[in-house]
Design a protein around this nucleic acid. Structure first.
Lengths: 288, 288
DNA sequence: CGCGGAGTTGAAGCGTTTCAAACGGGGTGG
DNA sequence: CCACCCCGTTTGAAACGCTTCAACTCCGCG
């Protein structure tokens, strides 16, 4: 975001933590179809099929390791099994924009399966394990395990729906609201993965968070202080404890000043989904 | 973005232009597998298969018609054949965030095929035609036309890669740069669809553009004026002519002031893709 | 003809960006 | 083992640019 936040990709920043240990090593006999399906949110398939002979390979990625490299012609689809990664892209002006956070169950790398180059990088924020599904095996895999095929499709849908998260965060005008939205989203996602929704261990630095929020990193620092002073959370460097989720949600709604309070309550409560209208038929033309 | 930009979904704004004529009507015998494939960017399939008996239905959507309704349980995948739509989502605070522009060849509605509700709406900015592929027919279709299956997969990849466009636009700090990025992206996409990359007919109002850029609509107006005064473009309401693409690209790179000029040229020219490094092996673990 | 929406432009307030400095932790090397 | 340095983080202060409120024009439409 800011001029001095610009870090070039050539910058040899990754030569420190990963040259020692091999950043990506195989974990034989660690994966199972059942686990993969549950990761993808499949409601416990009753018939787990012949998972034994399926070539499901699990890899271990060390912190700071690069799973996806922007611009490469990778042909492997990954499913995060544990840990977390950040997806980022180097923009034309050299700024590295953080696009998303990938947690367990997230699909990575689908964008370049059809021949295109990887549009963004994925870097491990901690030690991770991932399922690797090469395109070459994908078709065969889908045929032998239809449940996996369906689960991947569903995961893809989720991924596509989640792609707008960053935009929604940056739609808020005040940086406090943006930070609140980010923390709340992270909170619910952590809960989904089975971790605490209140005690967050941010694996992202202030700069990366700033990139996600679309503000300067100093502003992120200030917003943390503001929310902490207001008693909404407790912050100790990258350890964050959310103290008042409701108040946080209120902050997240605020665009500027307190206009939201003036909104008719019905509009907020019911939302667009609850509307009944002849228009709804439009979304299902096949049924007409 | 701004407080008075808030338009509630309940707001009966769509009751004006579309009650007269039926907003969504079938166009029998208008689609062909070949056309659909070329729309999806498939390089002219040599064996067009038996396209005649494939149930490819084309629909016509009138301007302001709602193709996708946020919150509904639509189970149809659409491929835009002609025209343009806007995708938008009503945020918790009632603000309608425009997320993307859909042009010919774009896939719409995949996000809710696995049972979820539609995460965003899609509204026609002009009269459109779309291919409708209901989930019920999708599997059969894919089996009978493997080329279509591959094309849809590729289209999905593109869609996923394109999902970050809005974020990249909003990554710029200055509103001029944001507008320049938006116009340039639109320009190249129009060129892809076979339309003029210089003469743009914006089907989006200032408010919607402002939403996409993440600024107030007055700011969009001012940025148009600024770029026009600089001679980079000519603007007449929603008609825009890009006069100096290179200068526009320079604007799009600028974050604030002129720091970019100070960047080492190599970093801009080569980019992340041109790097050679032992790290590249990481993106293809299966080959290791 | 008048109303309402869209777009433009002006002026003021204010929040963010920017530049700067200081603090703290973690690592390295003396 | 301690000094040192680097880097991430925090906080301060000033300036810029955006948001906001407001007025005005243009245009389509009832």
């Amino acid at each position: 975001m800011t001029a001095h936040d610009i870090r070039f990709a050539d910058h040899a920043s990754h030569a420190d933590g990963a040259t020692r240990r091999n950043p990506l090593i195989p974990l034989p006999d660690q994966g199972s179809l059942g686990e993969l399906l549950s990761l993808l949110g499949q409601p416990d398939d009753p018939a787990p099929a012949a998972s034994a002979d399926l070539p499901l390979s699990v890899w271990r990625l060390a912190q700071d390791g690069v799973l996806l490299r922007e611009g490469s012609a990778g042909q492997t689809l990954y499913v995060v099994r544990s840990g977390s990664l950040k997806c980022q892209k180097t923009l034309e002006d050299g700024y590295e924009q953080v696009l998303a956070l990938a947690l367990a169950g997230d699909l990575l790398g689908f964008e370049s399966l059809h021949g295109a180059r990887r549009p963004c990088s994925a870097i491990a924020l901690e030690d991770c394990t991932v399922y690797a599904l090469p395109t070459t095996e994908l078709r065969d895999l889908a045929q032998r395990a239809p449940a996996l095929d369906a689960a991947l499709r569903a995961g893809l849908s989720r991924q596509l729906a989640r792609a707008t998260d960053t935009t929604e965060i940056m739609a808020a005008v005040s940086s406090d609201a943006r930070l609140a939205r980010f923390l709340l989203r992270l909170s619910t996602r952590m809960a989904d993965v089975g971790r605490s929704p209140r005690r967050l261990r941010l694996r992202l630095g202030r700069r990366d968070i700033a990139s996600l929020l679309g503000v300067a990193h100093e502003t992120v620092s200030r917003s943390f202080s503001t929310l902490a002073d207001a008693g909404l959370l407790r912050v100790d460097n990258r350890e964050v404890e959310l103290l008042d989720l409701d108040a946080l949600r209120a902050r997240a709604r605020i665009t500027r000043g307190l206009h939201v309070d003036a909104l008719p309550a019905a509009a907020r409560a019911s939302g667009p989904a609850a509307r009944s209208s002849w228009w709804s038929a439009l979304d299902t033309p096949a049924a007409a």
